[in-house]
């Protein structure tokens, strides 16, 4: 199955919503066979994408503060541990 040309939704929530939509469409039998296969492919991609998100690890916690120009600046948190 081709994974190319698949773009992940911006957020995890959107991905889950899309996934839920796909599931209800496939389970409801509303879509044609080819389309349901395409949606299956998309659904698999979304699941893989979401698993990827869950398995990803963020950097350190950052500390935000008001910068000199009135914006927000961030620096990594130095923890005592």
């Amino acid at each position: 199955m081709a994974k190319k040309n698949q773009t992940p939704p911006k957020t995890f929530e959107e991905a889950l919503n899309e996934l839920e939509q796909i599931l209800s469409e496939i389970e409801g039998g509303e879509v044609g066979l080819e389309e349901s296969l395409l949606k299956y492919e998309r659904g698999n991609f979304l699941i893989q994408h979401c698993r990827g998100v869950l398995n990803s690890a963020e950097k350190q916690i950052e500390v935000l503060s008001k910068s000199a120009d009135g914006g927000v600046q961030s620096v990594p948190l130095n923890e005592p541990e």
């Binding site: 889950l16 349901s36 659904g43």
Partner: peptide, 19 residues
């Protein structure tokens, strides 16, 4: 979320098979 993804994967496979 992880559990939900597992269930979704299952539903997806079953749904397509049924379809």
């Amino acid at each position: 979320a992880g559990e939900m993804l597992d269930i979704s994967a299952l539903r997806l496979r079953r749904g397509v098979r049924t379809r």
